[in-house]
Amino acid sequence: MDSFVQLMREWPPGYGGVERVAHELASEWGATVFSFDAQSRSADEIDALQVSYPRVVLPASPPFGRLLLPLPSRALWSLLRSRRPLYGHLPSPGVLLVLLLARLLQPRRPVFAHWHCFVAPEPGSKNRLFAVYQWLALRVVPHLTKVITTSPVLAKELIRCGCQSARVAVLPCCLNAEQEKVLLALPLRSATATPLRVLFIGRLDSYKRLDWLMEALSLLNNPWSLAVVGDGPRRLAFESLRAELFGASSAVTFMGRLDETAKLAELASADVLVLPSDRSTEAFGIVQLEAMAAGIPSLAFQNQRSGMGWVGQLSGLPWSQQPDDLSLVLDQLAASPELRTALSLEARDKYLNLFARKVWLQAFDSIFSPQR
């Protein structure tokens, strides 16, 4: 069977998790990726990763908030008429609509959905729109050929919501081969009595809950430092909170957006990565894989509709994975360099056993080989 064609909202490869997943799949399939190019990156975006596959922009309606719907076009008609397996990335109402149309027009055509996350409630009218979209999506995807998701946590929730277990498969996110090689070459952490070096990487927005991390650190009894990598609309608010909590102390450093070389240097010097997001829209966190490959444990919260807690969960660090206990577990790490050394080894071992490139390729082949 022909290679899959993909459909997504953004322009791959981009910097987000959805774009990076689509990029890795396209690099294996070599087939066209169709996109609504929601952020108009196709004209002048410098690709973050090398692209070896064709990409096509589908004309779409003017955005209504985050809502984009496909417009009638030759490219859309070509996509719907094709007999190639179609692989769409959710969440996106526009992508969901095309998957449904493809299924209705050609019932025997293989149509797959990649369920990246459950959308989370937001204040106001957006909450109602998100709820309607998710209600529709959970009624469409059980009728597709298969639903692929990123963790056993999300797979379990999809089955609970009505998908047949035989039609749900798990394909965790992955790193590209070059990233993996560089990160695995970094040395594991040694048991030296230095202040705990905490790292945060992400967009500085409200749902990332950097405020919770800084508040937790303010309660520690042992020395620490925090490097914040990333930028976003809440940066000034977070910097103000730093001044409120710590005064003139330089324990918290805002690095801004860094290139890959500079980010690698931060990973090489950190003891623990913390991703304290409170929403299910943060469902995996590829940066957790970067940390674990580098031998850094990752802390994230457990959520019934997110795999974040599952990705970095380590047997050597049992804790509730709830916000109220973040300060306690961080203080435990700050007090014990020996524990940090043991967790460094366990984090890398978990990466090698569950998330390494060769493991991902085996899972990829087991899911898609019958379709190729």
Rank of each mutant, 00 (worst) to 15 (best):
G256Y: 02
L184M: 10
V274K: 00
E282I: 01
W224H: 03
A185P: 02
G247I: 08
L217S: 02
L273F: 05
E290D: 11
R209L: 06
L264A: 11
S225G: 10
L213V: 06
L183V: 11
F246Y: 14
R234V: 03
E157P: 01
P223A: 06
S250D: 15
L196H: 01
A177S: 12
P223T: 09
F284Y: 15
L289A: 09
N222E: 10
V228I: 13
R197Y: 01
A265Q: 15
E282P: 09
Q288M: 13
K263S: 11
K156G: 09
V274Y: 03
S218W: 04
W212P: 00
L154T: 13
P223L: 10
L217F: 05
D271K: 05
K156E: 14
L275R: 07
E180W: 05
F200N: 10
L196D: 00
K156S: 12
E157A: 15
A191P: 14
S249A: 11
P152Y: 06
L273R: 01
T281W: 02
L158N: 05
T192F: 03
S280G: 07
Y207P: 11
R242M: 02
L154C: 07
F246Q: 03
T281H: 08
K208P: 06
L241F: 07
L273N: 11
A265N: 13
A248K: 14
E282G: 04
N222W: 07
L204E: 07
S151C: 04
L154M: 08
G202S: 02
T261F: 02
I286P: 14
S206W: 12
L184Q: 07
V153F: 03
G162A: 05
K208C: 05
P172S: 10
G256N: 04
V229S: 04
I201M: 11
L196M: 05
Q179L: 10
Q288K: 10
M255A: 13
L196W: 02
V287F: 01
S240K: 12
G256V: 03
F200C: 05
L184N: 02
T253V: 15
V229P: 03
L210R: 04
L186K: 07
S240L: 06
R197V: 05
W224Q: 03
R167F: 06
R160S: 14
L267H: 09
E215M: 14
K156D: 12
C174I: 07
T192P: 00
L204R: 04
V272L: 04
G247Y: 08
V170A: 03
S190C: 11
L245P: 00
L183A: 13
R234Q: 15
A262I: 00
A270V: 05
